[in-house]
Design a protein around this nucleic acid. Structure first.
Lengths: 196, 196
DNA sequence: CAAGTGATGTCAGTCACTGATGTCAGCGAC
DNA sequence: GTCGCTGACATCAGTGACTGACATCACTTG
């Protein structure tokens, strides 16, 4: 018999999600969450930097997926192709099985501005990381930054569409469609139906 | 002789800016700011919802500038032209005289993640407002949202460039150049040198 | 001049978060 | 085996952001 149940962090996370959803984020205290899994408030804060962070765990892997996509792009690829490769790589994070969880998480975040702030900060961090990776592929600024920001925008729009009820396309298909809309907007050629 | 000095809000704002810059945001308490202008902490919170908000006052006017730009675009204008018009309108908010103030404010924000979060939330709000205005001009989603997000991205990149030491171009000139880089990125025609 | 009104002060309270210190089961060194 | 260390946790005290309730008081308005 071990002294502590394993997976403390996961249990805290699960309890937090449940409470944030049922009771509301602001109406849930850190002590509530800790108590729900038989721990103290202090222990909660040993596992998570703050009350919001519990919803944003594992972002490193998420960012890493984008970066690995950048690295997988063929050498000599244009910035937009590098971004597409990153988006494809990131899409692996969102298989159909994950939609219900993503919807729950999204519902919680949308219901609270403080959580939206944190989400936006994470996305901004992703954009910075992505821009650095793109620069690493030889694309200079400001193109690298613009490509990264555009990629994150496309991801965000695609993500919301993916959560939409009735939406059945896989994540990358949505991303591609959104990217296509975007290039059309700025007068570029369609990726789906390239010029003859 | 009046009971209260006028411009309380402005004096609080000025004192906050000064303290955030010299001492640091986290090292400055709300009570410090209030005391600096001879008021109490409670009064500070009657004027500003929280410690961060003091740096983000007057955003309504800023957003309104974007929206008025959208409305000023000629009827039948393409989404990208509407965005350009919005960017032009917003540029009026950043005359050369304002650069030093903007640099100070930017320095404070960059030094603290919590402030960056708030800034990002404001920009996200701007994007939502802008998207709504663009939809009002007959552009459907997802194009309207993408156009708005793109506009905000261009604004952000241009803003940072504008603050750069040695940069002498007026704001709108920078915005145009950035937008041009972006359209080039997605394979579109150059705005500066349109196709023949 | 009585009855507001609005900007402020005062006070008490909650909660997020932090630092210091104590506890104790398991684990390897010897 | 037990000694000493370590890691995950508890306990406690403290700071500071914010909030609600209520009092004050110069000035305004009928």
């Amino acid at each position: 018999m071990v002294r502590w149940e394993p997976g403390t962090r996961d249990r805290l996370q699960e309890a937090a999600l449940e409470l944030y959803d049922s009771r509301g984020f602001e109406e849930t205290t850190a002590a509530d969450i800790a108590r729900a899994v038989g721990l103290t408030e202090r222990t909660f804060f040993r596992h998570f930097a703050d009350k919001r962070e519990v919803l944003f765990d594992g972002q490193e892997f998420f960012q890493a997926a984008f970066v690995s996509g950048v690295e997988k792009a063929p050498s000599g690829a244009a910035a937009i192709e590098i971004v597409t490769s990153a988006l494809e790589s990131a899409a692996a994070f969102f298989p159909a099985e994950r939609r219900d969880y993503s919807r729950l998480r999204q519902r919680i975040i949308v219901a609270n501005p403080a959580l939206q702030e944190r989400e936006l900060l994470k996305m901004a961090g992703l954009a910075r990381t992505l821009a650095a990776a793109i620069r690493g592929r030889g694309v200079p600024d400001p193109q690298a930054t613009l490509a990264a920001e555009t990629g994150v925008t496309v991801f965000g729009v695609a993500f919301l569409a993916w959560l939409e009820p009735g939406e059945e396309r896989p994540f990358f298909a949505i991303e591609t469609a959104v990217l296509d809309e975007l290039t059309a907007l700025t007068g570029g050629p369609s990726a789906a139906a390239p010029r003859a």
